[in-house]
Computed example of a mutant assay.
Amino acid sequence: MEIKHHTTGDDGIFYIDEQGERLGDMRYMLVNNTEMDIYHTEVDAAYEGKSLGKQLIEAGINYARQKHFKIIPSCTFAKSVLTGNDQFKDVLA
């Protein structure tokens, strides 16, 4: 499994691809020059419970840290991951 990243303008997506099949994705948009809003995370039902959603959120967190962005977690799942762990406080908006 590989996590890939694609951007178009202010919109971005991290997705897990396995042999051409998309297993899940996490979508975000840049709100301004310093914040990104993670607004959707989804994993194929066949792969739920395998931490793929968390891996996608963590890929977004790593990207935010590299770009010095703060994250607005409007996605319920992203919010639960980010607010439930002290190691992610540095990226919360």
Rank of each mutant, 00 (worst) to 15 (best):
D10W: 00
L52C: 02
A59K: 02
Q87A: 12
R65C: 11
E58L: 12
H68A: 10
M29N: 11
E21M: 02
C75V: 07
I13Y: 09
I61W: 02
M29Y: 14
L82F: 06
A45F: 06
D90V: 05
M26A: 15
T34W: 06
I38M: 08
T76M: 13
D44H: 12
G12H: 02
D86E: 15
Q87F: 06
H68L: 09
I71Y: 02
L56E: 01
E48C: 12
K50I: 07
I72D: 04
E2N: 13
N32G: 02
M36G: 05
A64I: 10
A64Y: 08
D37L: 05
D17L: 11
G9I: 06
D11T: 13
M1V: 04
S74D: 09
A93V: 05
M29P: 00
E18V: 14
G24T: 08
I57Y: 02
Y63G: 07
T41G: 01
E35Q: 13
G49K: 06
K54E: 14
A78P: 02
I3P: 01
E18N: 15
K79I: 01
K54N: 08
E18Y: 14
A64C: 10
Q87P: 01
D11Q: 14
A59E: 05
V91W: 03
I3G: 00
F69P: 04
M26F: 06
K79G: 01
F69V: 03
N33C: 02
A64F: 13
L56W: 00
H40L: 05
G9W: 07
M36H: 01
I72H: 07
M1G: 08
K79N: 12
K50L: 14
T76D: 15
N85W: 05
M1Y: 03
A64L: 09
R65W: 11
T41V: 11
K67H: 15
D25V: 01
I57A: 00
P73K: 05
K79E: 10
G12E: 07
D10I: 12
G24S: 07
K79P: 00
A93F: 07
K54G: 06
V91F: 03
G60D: 01
T83Y: 14
G49T: 10
E35Y: 04
V31A: 03
F14L: 12
S51H: 14
A46D: 09
K89W: 05
F14A: 09
G53I: 03
A45E: 14
E48W: 01
F88D: 10
F69C: 09
Y47F: 15
V91C: 10
A64D: 12
Y63K: 11
D25P: 00
N62K: 13
D90Y: 02
N32S: 04
I3Q: 06
R22A: 06
L56R: 01
L56T: 03
Q19R: 13
I13A: 14
T34M: 04
T7D: 15
D37K: 03
F77L: 06
K54Y: 03
E35C: 07
A93H: 11
Y39N: 12
F77I: 02
T83G: 08
A78K: 04
Q87D: 10
T83V: 08
K50Q: 14
F88P: 07
A78T: 07
L92M: 13
T41A: 00
T34E: 04
H68W: 01
T41R: 00
E21G: 00
H5N: 13
I13D: 12
Q87R: 15
V81L: 05
D86P: 08
D90M: 02
N33V: 01
F69R: 09
K4H: 11
L23P: 00
